[in-house]
Amino acid sequence: MKENPMAMQTDSYDIMAQKVIQEHRKVKWFQLRRLLKRKAAFLSLIILVLALVAVLFAPWIAPYPEQGQGAVNLEHRLQAPSPSYFLGTDVYGRDMLSRVIWGGRISLFGGVCIVFFAALIGVPLGLWAGYNEGISGAVISRVVELFLSFPSTLIAMAISILIGAGWFTAIIALIIPWWPWYTRLVQGEVLSIKQTLYVEAAQMLGYGKLYIIFRHLLPNIMTPVLVMILLDLGPAIIAIGLLSFIGLGTQPPMADWGLMVWEGAPNILSEWWISIVPGCAMFMVVIAFNIFGDALKDIFDSKG
């Protein structure tokens, strides 16, 4: 391209520009401060922190911890919200507030587990498949395509039927079609970073594959992966709910938010709170994750 010797002066600046780009992709504190200046992002962060606190300290925060874990309370069945039962009670007389808090434990923890393990499996495979274009990379790509060519939730349902219903099996069933999304994301990122000068330079200097992967590739894909993790938490929580709602996930007396909505569905017209309370909890947390993730993504994507 720029073979004109007179143009060589500027080439060194291209390398510098690359360095700057590399640096800019890392998380910076002023970026996070900017994030909190957005009202919506700040509000969602508050919702998330509240949910997290409630869930972590459930035994102290829930008014009736044992009911939250499933103990029945038959003399107070189907009570409307009142001072003693803040969000009403369900068909077994259990306090909805306590149930929602304990259900949040299962839903949130499940969501985190799915996304965490999906990323844990998907990211290394993506790094490997992106960096090695040999047979192993091709095999990984094909497997990923196979998974992505069919709706993930349907695959999860099928696996869940096969290995049996339950909270733990539902999580496994959801991780299996979930990790390929991370592999594909990382693979794409790696393919573009691989062509940059600093990776080529490292290759020419004779650094090993693993060194380049961990030293140069991993730090540069961390931001998109983190954003995707954050954006995936909401869908993961919904996905567990979807499985639980049709009886493939959490089993009573334990209940996640999806199952609680299901339990209230027959009484929706009279005792609406049994479904609406956990449904609202789910909706609020998911939308908070989504808005927060979106804001984060916006900030990382914006130039400069």
């Binding site: 909401g234 919904i238 709910g241 979807l242 709602f245 999806g258 909505v261 299901w262 569905a265 929706i268 017209l269 479904s275 609406i276 449904g279 609202c280 789910m282 909706f283 998911v286 939308i287 989504n290 808005i291 979106d294």
Partner: peptide
């Protein structure tokens, strides 16, 4: 954001 965050079963019940 609300549209993609609302679980389908919850939305159906709310509509009813």
């Amino acid at each position: 954001s609300a549209a993609v965050s609302i679980p389908i079963f919850f939305l159906a019940l709310l509509l009813q």
